[in-house]
Amino acid sequence: MDGDSVHPGVAPLSFLLGRWRGEGEGGFPTINSFKYGEELTFSHSAHKQPVIVYSQKTWKLGSGEPMHSESGYWRPKPNGSIEVVIAQSTGLVEVQKGTFDAENKVVKLQSELVGNALKVREITRVFNVVDAEMSYVVEMATNLVNLQPHLKAFLKKL
């Protein structure tokens, strides 16, 4: 997507726009560690509001069997803050707020609300883009475990 077709409110986050694909690994004290393939898509229509449409899907590396998916909307604000809503395939819903640093290409998100979750209390996400590679870390807290790393991945822009 060229810079001319991006809504001015989304322009600072235009480094996210497009499809990203790669691999990640996950773990948590209450589950076995695992590796996965992943694709993220960030899209935008300049004719609409300053909103980025987000979607994610993961699969088992060996078999290609689907694992997890989620989608939502990212709404950047002129002051460098961002509001995000994400619905996961498990039924869990996240309302997150955070900040973005357009110059360093970093987005940090913190859950304001985790809904429809029996065990999950809190989720944080940090996305970082360097050249054409994105890395991210997701941390999670449950009723039994305090906030700690859950997922990390490295993706290349397609």
Rank of each mutant, 00 (worst) to 15 (best):
S69K: 02
E133I: 03
P66R: 13
Y73W: 11
K156L: 11
G72F: 10
V129R: 03
V6W: 01
V51G: 01
I52V: 15
L113P: 04
V84A: 01
V106K: 05
R125M: 03
L13I: 10
P12Y: 04
S33M: 07
V126G: 00
F34Q: 12
K156A: 13
L147T: 06
T99Q: 04
G62C: 12
G37D: 14
K97V: 06
V114A: 02
F34D: 14
D131G: 08
V120Y: 01
P50C: 09
I86D: 01
Q88R: 08
S5K: 12
W59S: 10
G26K: 04
Y73C: 05
L92V: 10
G3N: 08
P66M: 13
L113T: 12
A132P: 04
P76A: 00
H150Q: 14
M1Q: 09
V114M: 02
V107I: 14
N146F: 02
V84I: 02
L158W: 05
T58V: 08
Q110R: 06
T41G: 04
A153D: 10
I31Q: 13
A46W: 12
Q56K: 14
L40W: 15
S43K: 10
G115C: 04
E139W: 00
Q88A: 06
V6L: 06
K35H: 13
K57S: 14
L109Q: 07
P66Y: 10
K152Y: 05
P29L: 14
Y54T: 05
A117M: 06
S111G: 05
G115I: 02
L17H: 00
G91M: 01
V138G: 02
M134E: 14
K77C: 07
R19T: 14
M67P: 02
N104Q: 09
E65N: 11
S45Q: 11
F28Q: 13
Q88Y: 07
L113Q: 12
I52K: 09
V95G: 03
G98H: 06
K157Q: 14
I82P: 07
G115E: 08
D131H: 10
T41M: 05
P78F: 01
I82S: 07
N143K: 11
V145H: 14
A87R: 02
V130Y: 05
V95C: 05
G72D: 09
K48N: 13
Q96T: 00
I52L: 13
V84K: 00
N104K: 13
A87H: 02
V107E: 11
L92C: 01
